[in-house]
Computed example of a mutant assay.
Amino acid sequence: MSDDYDSPWKEVVIHHFPEFMAFYFPQAHAQIDWSLPHVFLDQELAALSRDAELGKRLLDKLVSVHKLDGDEQWVLVQLEVQGWRDADFAERMFVYNYRVYDRYRHPVASMALLTDDNRYWRPTGFGWRQLGCTMQLDFPIAKMHDYAYVIADLANQDNPFALVSAAHLLAQNTRNDAHRRRIAKWRLTKMLYERDWDRQRIIDLYRVMDWIMRLPPALEQRLRTGIVQFERRSDMTYLSSIERIGMEIGEREGLKRGLDEGRKRGLDEGRKQGIDEGLQQGQRRGAADMLALVLKARFGPLDPSAQSRIDAADTRQITRWAENSVHADSLDAVFRSE
């Protein structure tokens, strides 16, 4: 299995930046006036970090915040999410720091979350002293590995990054054991549902956990079936959103299959048409597969006629049936025409 730690971290940091700071950098969080808006400056940061000598880009964020003492301050949050030790990391932090200052002439606070599994790698500064001149950047770090000893305690914390950290650590611990990962992911999902959080936050965090703790298709289907059944027993209100996530995943897989099919079809002028047709067919097939999975979880095995209706439907009709399934109490209600 190939893990992707980069994309989910980007999403969760943007949507829950105050909680991110409170969990990993509480001292800095206490100095920021969160009653005023904070602004992400990703495009500005990208323009300052395109040089080849900076090497492989890490996940980094530049955020404008206001301090409680009334001063505006640019905050550079640079996250190591690749899980590997980088000898040039501290120098890169230094380079980003002075380039941001040179561009904006504002104080810059650089900090880093290190998510690799090497407990001893803890870069915290870069600089030099020559001929009476001293140049030095010291920056705070949070080490994900430090939470590995308190994974059980993370479940009792109210900050959403406690569960995100647990998901990340358990993904590392189960990298070569898909069955253990499925069990861990199932437990975290139930813990997430037990939180007294608003609907959108639960949806956002489930998406991140789902992204981090990838499973093979067969085990993923088994997990999603369990989620649907759990929600039915618990009278949860997140079913439609979880189904929609599943539909999106099914559509993405269908798009990939369709693209592969389309590429094989045509040559020259016929190639574009083949790709377009393959994309549409793949999208419809992925949505149909996911709808059938959800209906089986709710109403049991599908009879041949129901399966045939799904197989013959277009994407718009499948989407309408998926929406009906949220509150339907029977297959007939799902397939109603209006």
Rank of each mutant, 00 (worst) to 15 (best):
S7I: 07
K10W: 13
K10M: 05
E11V: 04
E11G: 01
E11W: 11
I14G: 15
H15A: 06
H16D: 09
E19G: 05
E19I: 07
V39S: 03
A52L: 12
E53F: 00
E53Q: 02
G55W: 14
K56W: 15
R57D: 03
R57A: 15
L58T: 13
S64L: 02
E72W: 07
L76I: 02
V77A: 06
R85T: 08
D86L: 01
D86M: 01
A87Q: 02
D88I: 11
F89K: 14
F94N: 06
V95N: 09
N97E: 04
N97C: 13
Y98V: 08
R103G: 03
V108D: 06
A112G: 02
R122T: 11
F126H: 05
W128Q: 12
R129Q: 05
Q130T: 12
L131F: 12
G132I: 07
C133T: 15
D138T: 04
M144F: 01
Y147W: 00
A148G: 11
Y149T: 06
V150A: 14
D158N: 08
V164N: 05
N173L: 08
D177W: 00
L188W: 09
L192Q: 12
E194V: 00
E194H: 05
R195M: 04
R195V: 00
R199P: 00
R201D: 00
I202H: 05
D204F: 09
D204Y: 06
L205R: 03
L205A: 14
V208L: 06
P217D: 10
A218M: 10
Q221D: 11
L223D: 01
L239T: 11
I242D: 09
E243A: 14
R244I: 09
M247Q: 11
G250R: 11
E251K: 06
E253H: 14
G254W: 06
G258Q: 03
G258V: 12
R263I: 15
R265I: 13
D268N: 07
R271V: 12
R271D: 00
L279M: 05
Q281S: 09
Q281N: 04
R284M: 03
R285L: 11
D289N: 03
A292D: 10
L293D: 14
L295R: 05
K296V: 13
K296N: 07
F299V: 09
P301G: 08
S305P: 00
Q307V: 13
S308D: 15
I318Q: 04
N324G: 04
S325E: 03
A328D: 15
A328Q: 13
D329F: 15
A333Y: 14
A333S: 09
